[in-house]
Nucleic acid binder design. Structure first.
Lengths: 338, 338
DNA sequence: CTGAAAGCGCTTACAG
DNA sequence: CTGAAAGCGCTTACAG
């Protein structure tokens, strides 16, 4: 395996010139740069990662801590993991995957061995063990999600409260006054990530501010449970004319199936918004107005903030990414239930 | 950050003694070991990862290349990624996640910069670009899945042919002679991983060997498509008394819903086996006999083989993990369709 | 615009 | 059972 010495010899320069030519950290005569590039090409030279880590000030690796538990919705989880990895690569960073059973000890390990320059924290719970460890380590870190106590932390997340308010305002603009919400399963609210409660609370407070009547159900992901949830919504809110879906794809598909089965047309009989789901809603029949949960939005920003922190400490903050809205024609003025 | 020199000073020994005490590569007097451990504890010492990589012969990092495309079923994908990460950690290895858009160039990059000791390849396609790169690099690598040309490669996978044959034999043992198969969507067979075709082919050849009549459908993941698939099976095979499910959870759930809806009881009216799915089938009603796709089985073995290869070249091979069978009571003798 | 050299923090023959 | 020292392959002041 060719080393920097080989390149220097072939190019007829010193190793420091090779290093600077490759890093671009000082200006190099065009002819020299050319000779070096040729030598690199010819030898298939790649700087040794370990040597770079040791001599340089950084490793160009971020740890990604993305715990996966029973309540985790795999497609969304995967989307975020990939979005982080891609954003990192765009800045020449690699991603080291830390697993659930090593959540806090893994953070300590990779940070104090200087394996990584920083940490990206996914699937943040309100009370999250990783918060304390990261405060203590002082390693650059960015949370994608918002723990209860954000003191000293850098956090990025979709603005779920605003997303819920946006759903409400789109529906009230169309004239709806009775709006149902299908959320995640109770387990998710009990022990899962912190965003479902934030969406739910934003939903209720925006609805309250508008004087809108609401109902809320948390089905499991099986057909009968979804059926029961819809029944519950119509029982609680007999005049329900609009529905906000903030749930997994399986559940959303089941809802649409059941509506169709019951002869309820969207949007004529029921207006529907798909909110904060990480999947495409184009294939639903009919297509749904969507407030998408775009993993790339928050992950890209999180990686940027991590990169900044590697260079220089930055002020703690909570950055909320504003929601988007995709109109697809699933909202209409309300009509009384047939 | 404490270095090995600090530990040596505090313990009153040389740095080589510290190094050997920590690696266990030569015997150390008990009293010396104790002093070193105390010093390590007291200073919170962690060996610098970059220095280890540079001085040592290995990095203790594996690259995990796990492309994610439109046809990927996220829960299974995630299960394999996590199983690899956990198996790796059990051998003190970390996992670096390589993304789709960097599939081959990423492999070159991490291998030739000596960032990783080896490569674990997930979601292997029959014709896979990564095969050529890995042959050329000569880096230790293990494929979880089987490409068409396995020349020179180390591959591990569940024995999908045997799994399909097991499903057939369980059903024929119970007396079934007309067996349907619900597979993945056509897109998966067209461009996805190579295991769905292997299961399908194993199904057909085992059925042929037993003289069993078969039918096969490949629904998309929406309700109407699954409904149509079941109709197709019953049309092609009017006497169908048993069904093998080799599909995503969404589709499997839809199948069970539709059967229930149509008043078809399992196993009285239809025997059902859930085969090679990565999810739990306990929550299905009724519980299903299952041939599980246990990610840990192949991933653990793959990591072992990777570890071996880091130490010493091993012979190319294709290792097939035999399928398991979980009996839950969803197979009964056939009765003619009502 | 370029070079000689120190140093990053380990591992591992070599020596006793 | 232990130590002194070379060396891994870079980066980066320091110097010109």
């Amino acid at each position: 395996m060719a080393s920097i010495h080989d390149v220097a010899r072939v190019a007829g320069v010193s190793i420091s010139t090779v290093s600077y030519a490759l890093s671009g950290k000082r200006s190099i005569a065009e002819s020299t740069r050319l000779r070096i590039n040729n030598a690199v090409e010819q030898l298939g030279y790649r700087p040794n990662a370990g040597a770079r880590m040791l001599a340089g000030t950084r490793t160009n690796i971020f740890a990604l801590t993305a715990p996966f538990h029973a309540e985790t919705y795999a497609p969304a989880h995967m989307a975020f993991v990939l979005a982080v990895a891609q954003a990192a690569r765009a800045h020449d960073y690699d991603v080291l995957l830390l697993t659930q059973d090593e959540a806090t000890s893994g953070l300590r390990r990779v940070a104090s061995s200087r394996l990584v320059d920083g940490i990206i924290v996914l699937d943040v719970a309100a009370e999250d063990d990783r918060v304390g460890v990261i405060r203590e380590l002082g390693t650059p870190a960015v949370f994608i999600g918002i723990p209860r106590d954000t003191e000293g932390l850098v956090c990025v997340d979709l603005d779920f409260e605003a997303a819920a308010a946006l759903a409400i305002s789109r529906l009230t603009d169309a004239g709806h006054r009775s709006i149902g919400l299908i959320g995640h399963s109770p387990g998710v609210y009990a022990r899962g990530s912190n965003f479902p409660p934030r969406f739910r609370d934003g939903f209720f407070s925006a609805a309250a501010a508008e004087g809108v009547a609401t109902a809320f159900a948390m089905p499991e992901r099986d057909g009968p449970s979804v059926r029961a949830a819809l029944d519950e919504l119509y029982r609680t809110l007999p005049g329900m004319t609009a529905l906000v879906l903030h749930c997994e794809e399986t559940v959303q598909a089941a809802v649409m199936d059941i509506l169709r089965e019951r002869g309820l047309r969207v949007p004529q009989d029921l207006s529907v918004i798909s909110a904060c789901a990480s999947f495409e809603t184009d294939h639903f029949e009919p297509a749904l107005d969507t407030i998408p949960l775009v993993a790339a939005d928050s992950c890209t920003r999180a990686v940027e903030l991590a990169i900044e922190q590697v260079a220089v400490p930055i002020a703690p903050r909570v950055e909320l990414v504003p929601p988007r809205f995709l109109e697809r024609g699933s909202i209409a003025p309300p009509t009384p239930r047939r």
